[in-house]
Design a protein around this nucleic acid. Structure first.
Length: 634
DNA sequence: CTTAGGG
DNA sequence: CCCTAAG
């Protein structure tokens, strides 16, 4: 699993090498640590859950498959990085990787995904049973690797923002600190669903679950299997989904087994789901509706899980069936959506519920028929049943649609032809999404969106020194910065789904998704304006505001305009408006407005002073007259 | 492409 | 927020 993640590293490979040293030398500096962190992060993702691979990653994978050398190379890098950073035994990891490599190749040739999967499942089961029996949380090689990474992260983390820390600790803690503990945690979360550290719990559960089963007893063979799977997944989109799933499944499976042993009834999936739900609930106290949905979803999943578990227990032979079920079972689309909503809410504390509801409604629409959703804690994959393969080839499509503005045309096409891969591909390319082989699968219809998670994941770990890196890194960095203002900008983080396409009369489709501006965003905006001056939106966006990938310079401008308007309106008239605003639930705190006003005034003054042209005043809009007045007041 | 303005 | 015009 880790390997897969690594793939991304290809470009990063350099970073890794250099980064590792840096990290070792200075843990404290976030930036330096960032590179290594990223690397780790990637891995973690792979371990923890399928990370929606970016295009790059996929590409990498493909390359890997094609060339053994490449893979080897990657492996080597990984091992080194891990070793230097964590100081953990890397031999194991390297071995595993190398093996995996071989495995991958084989798999690719043979194309017997199903078989592999079955084997994997069975093995996993066995392993799990083993683990349970042993009950000893020893660290096996594979596991160790993971741990090492985690540990590194932890070490580095301190330097990073609070948020980052909070998130990271989860992974790091569970693994390294105490395996048994993590286990208990998992169970706990599953049954109880603690609210205290939802995200953490989830993370822990996954990582721990995944780590244990794998690491521990997994023999070389197991590793190979895993690798094969991974490879397979990479190779084919369908497989990818499966593979991801499988991976997860493995973890999940293992987890489930544990639980089953412990609690017989509960299933791993259910636990996960529950945890997620809990998290969401915690985050968003506001949304009742969302909670409701979540609960429902959770319950559904639970049922499914339970059934699955039963099957599992009863017959190992049906492993593959089970797997399929599992894959499907995670019908988590809802959860994802919910999470999104939730995140939004949390971030936009004051955001009107109406919006959320609207979003929710919309989301369902976007997914025509979410047959199943597989979701790791962090990432959710939505799968749609393939019309062709009614049997159910589900392809996980992870696309991070940034909403940046994928040509409307594309959107329209997509809407009309969800299956139209070409369009999708283009879009994907733009967005960075991971699409496996589109051409191959006619069957692979499916466009699903998995998005927010990825971004979320990224931000905590990745830190980027400069802008050069891929988009994702930038985002993450920004987010990190953003986070500070309000513990989180969950909203900011990512929910982009709410894309509603409104058909315009002519056939044009307009998609308007409203993304509420969070306080932190506004603050950033204001700061940016104050620093760089209004009008230099691109600059502001890049520097101050870099964090949010959505929010174009235009958006910034618009928002600023609105802010100005608001501030102006507010100030002069006096209290009445103020109170009214407040009542309505103004998201923008007075102080900010004040500041906005001030800034506007100052900026406007500068130009205005030079020449007070009527036009200037008018165009600028905000100012001259008003400002003068306002300034006088001030 | 970025900015500004209108819808 | 989206779209368009202008530099």
């Amino acid at each position: 699993m880790e390997t897969v993640v690594e793939v991304e590293g290809n470009e990063e490979g350099k970073y890794k090498e250099s980064g590792v040293e840096k990290s070792s030398s200075s843990l404290s500096s976030p930036k330096l640590g960032a590179d290594p962190v990223v690397y780790k992060l990637v891995r973690v993702e792979g371990d923890g859950r399928l990370v929606p691979a970016t295009d790059d990653e996929i590409m990498e994978v493909g390359n890997l498959l094609a060339d053994d050398k490449i893979e080897m190379h990657l492996v080597a890098d990984t091992g080194q990085s891990g070793g230097s950073s964590s100081g953990m035994p890397q031999l194991e990891s390297s071995e595993g990787l190398s093996q995996s490599e071989n495995t991958e190749v084989d798999a690719g040739k043979s194309n017997t995904h199903v078989e592999y999967i079955e084997e994997m499942l069975q093995k996993v089961k066995q392993d799990e049973s083993h683990l349970l029996a042993c009950g000893s949380p020893d660290h096996s090689s594979a596991y160790v690797i993971v741990e090492g990474q985690c540990s590194d992260q932890n070490d580095k983390m301190p330097g990073i923002d609070e948020k980052l820390q909070s998130e990271i600790p989860l992974q790091g803690n569970d693994t390294p600190s105490s395996p048994s503990l993590s286990k208990s945690h998992i169970n706990h979360s599953g049954s109880v669903g603690e609210c205290s550290n939802p995200s953490n719990e989830l993370m822990e559960g996954q990582s721990s679950a995944s780590a244990r089963p794998f690491g521990r007893e997994t023999t070389v063979k197991d590793k190979q299997w895993l690798k094969r799977r991974i490879a397979m997944g990479l190779t084919n989109s369908c497989d990818v989904l499966a593979s991801s799933f499988i991976i997860k499944d493995n973890k999940l499976l293992s987890k489930g087994k544990e639980e089953s042993c412990n609690n017989d009834g509960t299933t791993s999936m259910s636990n996960t789901a529950v945890g997620a739900v809990n998290v969401e609930c915690k985050d968003s106290s506001t949304n009742h509706s969302s909670q409701m949905e979540e609960h429902q979803t959770a319950s559904v999943e639970r049922q499914r899980n339970s059934s699955t578990d039963k099957d599992h227990k009863s017959e190992d032979l049906h492993a593959d069936q089970v797997a399929a079920k599992r894959v499907r079972k995670p019908t988590r689309r809802y959860i994802e959506e919910l999470s999104e909503v939730e995140s939004k809410e949390s971030s936009g504390k004051s955001i009107p519920s109406a919006k959320n509801s609207g979003l929710r409604q919309m989301s369902p629409k976007s997914n025509t028929r979410p047959v199943g959703i597989a979701s790791s804690n962090r990432g959710t994959f939505v799968m749609r049943l393939d019309s062709l393969g009614g049997s159910g080839v589900q392809v996980p499509y992870v696309s991070r649609v940034r909403r940046s503005r994928p040509r409307k045309n594309v959107m329209a096409l997509m809407e009309f032809h969800p299956q139209g891969m070409g369009m999708t591909a283009a879009l994907v390319k733009t967005a960075f999404s991971v699409h496996s082989s589109q051409p191959n699968n006619e069957s692979g219809n499916i466009v699903l969106k998995a998005r927010s998670t990825v971004e979320k994941m990224q931000h905590p770990f990745t830190v980027e020194p400069e802008k050069a890196k891929p988009f994702s890194s930038m985002v993450s960095i920004e987010q990190g910065q953003n986070m500070e203002p309000k513990h989180v900008d969950p909203s900011g983080d990512t929910s982009d789904d709410n894309v509603v396409t409104v058909p315009t009369g002519k056939g044009g489709v307009r998609r308007k998704h409203h993304r509420a501006w969070t306080l932190s965003e506004v603050m950033k905006l204001v700061e940016g304006v104050s620093r760089y001056g209004a009008g230099r939106w691109s600059e502001i966006k890049r520097l101050a505001f870099a964090s949010y990938s959505y929010r174009t310079s235009v958006d910034l401008k618009d928002k600023w305009r609105n802010l100005l308007k608001a501030s102006l309106a507010q100030t002069p008239p006096d209290k009445r408006i103020n109170s009214r605003k407040h009542a309505s639930g103004m998201p923008i705190p007075a102080p900010i407005l004040l500041r906005v006003r001030e800034l506007a005034e100052r900026q406007s003054q500068v130009p205005s002073n030079l020449s007070s042209t009527s036009k200037l005043a008018g165009s600028t809009g905000r100012n001259n007259v008003h400002e003068t007045r306002s300034s006088g007041y001030l």
